[in-house]
Amino acid sequence: MATKLVFLLLLTAFSVQAQAKETPADNYKAYCVQCHGSEGTGKGVNVRDMSVVPRDHTDAKSMSGRSDETLFKAIKEGGPSIDKSILMPPWGSTLSDEEINDLVQHLRMLCKCKFG
């Protein structure tokens, strides 16, 4: 019994560690900056040949036109899920729902704006 308990505890500790949450700033730096740019202005290192320019996350006007749910969906399922570009890929296998929610809040910080 005691052995089983220790095993269970170890298993729990391991799975928590394996799914350790990243900070939204680190997730943004890892996955978003390549296209949306180090300043979040949509001028990432990848944009030269793109047919559609990535969203400027500091643009309060356009960002306030998107609800948190829409931003969540775009990150999780990719651009086409909100009728936007295929160049924005789905990050649902990379990020947990909690991390995506954090990223949405990070975007609100960058645009200094709310929906509506």
Binding site: V45, N46, S85, I86
Partner: peptide, 20 residues
């Protein structure tokens, strides 16, 4: 490239595509 968007991050020719 049109339908899947690989070129956003990858060069598909020496001078065409993303670089990350």
């Amino acid at each position: 490239n049109k339908f899947l968007g690989c070129m956003a991050c990858h060069l598909i020719e020496p001078e065409y595509g993303g670089v990350s």
